[in-house]
Design a protein around this nucleic acid. Structure first.
Lengths: 153, 153
DNA sequence: AGCAACCGTAATCATAACGGTTACAATTAA
DNA sequence: TTAATTGTAACCGTTATGATTACGGTTGCT
């Protein structure tokens, strides 16, 4: 799942730098270092989440379907999850309801985990794709000149 | 992993209510609804993390090795992770270092995910076992009397 | 029309993580 | 000594996921 999230973000960052031109799954796969079908699968999730759009046929490919400010890491994470899946779902097994602890532990943990869940979601929602692109540019710049101070693009 | 975390917390909550008496893996397994060996495996992780202690032989079992205030959900989470594992590790695959995006995406995401990681850790660290026990007690109380208001014990 | 470039998806295979279970040696109380 | 317990290894079955192949449908170009 971690991998899916990271690769999905990689894909979106790549598309963001394509200036609205559709990019084929093969080209993206080259950058990500995986198979084109894997990219198309993830692209399918991103498409269903409304983050990207794809064009069939020759010259087709994927492109962002929202402005960079309107795609956050939280959106990406949700796109990777099942429709109803909950990142912090208390995956209870089969606690013994005949036991005091077993009977209420799941609900208790659900409540106790709420703040952690919200904190993380808020932090992810605070990072739009523009920020990802900015980070990438910063690193590429400092890499270019090899100088300690960077010129801000 | 989610399951392991939840079950580990269940185990600790159970031990917390045992008043310092060692509890056998069989008894805990009953409450959790799993096999004693599964409990012993998790107990092993918790022991290596310094959260519990175990006694061998007849009448043996597990007991907490810290005060309830000194065990937080973050401690439990860490106990479930490999020594160097990072919950937010950027599980990069094989990004193409010949590509601008591929070359820096991992490090960029690492930085961008930092705040989310810290936010979640802080939220988890804010929940000690005492809080878990309190939640459990609250639910058991309201369950007892079936009354809307609860008496705070 | 025909071809080639693309996507969407199903199917298959390999791998890794994990829970469930059995087995067994080591420890300890009675 | 015996019975209760832990610690661990080993094995099986399930699930998630990446890699790959295959194939049908779409679309641009000539």
């Amino acid at each position: 799942m971690n991998t899916r999230f990271v690769v999905a973000t990689h894909i979106l960052a790549y598309l963001a730098r394509a200036n609205g031109q559709p990019v084929s799954s093969e080209v993206v796969a080259k950058s990500v270092g995986t198979h084109p079908v894997v990219v198309r699968r993830l692209l399918g999730d991103l498409r269903r989440a409304g983050l990207v759009r794809t064009q069939l046929g020759t010259g087709g490919g994927a492109l962002l379907d929202r402005s960079l400010e309107n795609i956050t890491l939280l959106d990406v994470l949700h796109a990777m999850l099942e429709p109803e899946a909950d990142l912090f779902a208390v995956n209870n097994a089969n606690p013994n309801t005949g036991c005091d602890v077993g009977r209420v532990i799941s609900d208790s943990l659900d409540d106790l985990l709420g703040p952690a869940k919200k904190a993380m979601q808020a932090a992810l929602a605070a990072v739009p794709l523009t920020e990802v692109i900015r980070q990438i540019r910063l690193r590429l710049n400092s890499e270019d000149c090899g100088c300690p101070a960077d010129n801000g693009s």
